[in-house]
Nucleic acid binder design. Structure first.
Lengths: 101, 101
DNA sequence: AGTATGTGTAAAACGATATTTTACACATGA
DNA sequence: TCATGTGTAAAATATCGTTTTACACATACT
């Protein structure tokens, strides 16, 4: 298996929710937000890939979707890591490695 | 393999850094913080298991320790999820599952 | 046409969080 | 005694996640 293309931002968990979960369930954004106990706008931000899936949100979505929170959190983590890499830029190179490797 | 005991908070990544990485490298907290490009107090909070390993911190620690950021982030994620579960409490039960399962 | 309903968006307000800086007390070893 | 590292705390700052309120737009229904 090849590595992910590091120049491309990983798929946001909101895409999966928007493309698969909601359509399969045939549930509107408004309904889904109410079921999950969050505001419609907050859910919308996630679906638009503009807001993060926090740990608490992962629990809510995981319960709602019927798969656990892990997948949602892992997808968000990949995005966060990619973003952090952009933010930290070349500063990372200045950090020495102390370990054996 | 048995599941983790859900009543016990998962091991904080700071414990691993404190117990293994720093001792093995023979490096002081002050030195390590400077090498990683963060304040001594910030690193201290992590070692004391009082502060989180953010995505950016995971990149720094991962470079410093010589293993990538993934392990550090995964450990923190487990803690975050556990904390979120405590915070959300029984509210999670009110969320219906729409999926097949 | 008019009415209801869902959607996309934006701004305000709020509380919480992550981090740095500054500061001080304590311990250890030269 | 002096220097150095450590534990800790408070202040200051910037950023973030969320809800509420608001408005424009679209679609469907009657």
């Amino acid at each position: 298996m090849v590595d992910r293309d590091p120049s491309r931002r990983p798929t946001h968990p909101g895409a999966m929710l928007r493309e698969f979960v909601l359509p399969a369930a045939g549930i509107s954004v408004k309904q889904a937000a109410q079921m999950m106990g969050v505001s419609r706008q907050n859910l919308h931000r996630i679906l638009a890939e503009k807001g993060p899936v926090t740990s608490e949100m992962a629990l809510r979505i995981g319960k709602f979707a019927g798969n656990g929170p892990e997948l949602w959190l892992a997808m968000q983590q990949a995005v966060d890591l990619w973003d952090a890499r952009q933010a930290i830029g070349t500063d990372i190179e200045a950090i020495p490695t102390v370990g054996a490797a």
